[in-house]
């Protein structure tokens, strides 16, 4: 099942989209903990786009949600300032100052996060959550095989 959302990245719309995504995740068969992690990651991605990519100015974001038998894949495309969050260094933990945790929460909440360097305008991020637990080395192998 694939569903595409086009939304204006404003704080009100992010909250509304989170409710829509929760309904889809509830139907996907993901356990509640994993579902919560996906919601958190996507919210952080969208908040980053709004805060940094569009600098608070509401602009369009396209989100594609794909539910497959063994995984949920979500792509997020924006036309804001280019930023490859996968290259962002992890913060010091526990943090000694407020802020700076968003990207870390995205990376740790999802099983795979990849950035499309060939995206001409803006950014294209692909996030994957496996429905069943996988060992770390299985995930690592997949990361090496896929571009």
């Amino acid at each position: 099942m694939e569903k595409t959302f086009k939304l204006i990245a404003s704080s009100e719309n992010l909250t509304r989209f989170r409710s829509q995504l929760k309904i889809l995740l509830d139907q996907s068969g993901l356990i509640e903990k994993k579902s919560g992690e996906v919601l958190l990651a996507i919210q952080e991605v969208l908040t980053n786009i709004l805060k940094h990519g569009y600098r608070g100015k509401p602009s369009e974001v396209t989100i594609t949600y794909t539910d497959e038998p063994d995984q949920i894949t979500i792509t997020v495309q924006d036309s804001g300032k280019k930023f490859d969050m996968t290259q962002h260094a992890d913060p010091k933990l526990p943090p000694d100052k407020p802020g700076g945790l968003g990207i870390y929460l995205i990376k740790t909440s999802m099983d795979k996060v990849s950035y499309d360097k060939n995206c001409k305008n803006g950014n294209l991020l692909r996030l994957i959550k496996f429905k069943k637990e996988r060992k770390e080395n299985q995930i690592k192998d997949m990361k090496e095989v896929q571009p």
């Binding site: 989170r18 919560g36 919601l39 958190l40 919210q43 952080e44 908040t47 943090p95 100052k97 407020p98 802020g99 945790l101 968003g102 929460l105």
Partner: peptide, 16 residues
């Protein structure tokens, strides 16, 4: 039922 990095940052600031 839900907290994100903005919520965490608010608590970290208050704790400091």
């Amino acid at each position: 039922g839900y907290i994100d990095s903005s919520g965490l940052a608010t608590f970290v600031e208050a704790l400091q």
